[in-house]
Amino acid sequence: MNQEMIFAGFGGQGVMLMGQILAYAGMMEGQQVSWFPAYGPEMRGGTANCSVIIGDEAVGTPIVTEPQVVVAMNLPSLDKFEPHLAAGGILLINSSLIERPAKRSDVKALLVPCNDIAKELGNPKVANMVMVGAIVAASGVVKIESVLQVLAKKIFKNKPEVMQLNEQAIRRGMACIS
């Protein structure tokens, strides 16, 4: 079974990196993975999104059209991808920037105040890491240990001083999902 996910937000929110971290963590666990960006001029300041597939089956198309998980970091992303979410899927909403609730009642909507938590932690840049923690807790698609390993070994290999803050952000995000 493969988990198909879409990560969306505006350019600069780090949604591409969120997807890559998850894909990398899946790969480290020996799962089949793919990461596919919607690329184009709209990536600069407009909406950005990427498809991530993780699971035990060979990946066919890397482009996700009926996701089981949608991560919306801003309102346009929620408007765009909520309708495509598979019934019973997980909808993660960045409630710091999105005021409306989910419209669908056949999905599991979860609110994560990413930017507020990041601000509490003293660095607005880690809002995406808060969401990474929430995704892991909500979907179980990869283990938290794998994510931390990816951050330590790949993403922040040359910046070990930021690891602690990012781990804190991830753990706060996990705590949002009960």
């Binding site: 894909a23 596919f36 990946v59």
Partner: peptide
Amino acid sequence: DGALGQMMEP
């Protein structure tokens, strides 16, 4: 093609 060029896989 652009999809293969842009996508990431192991």
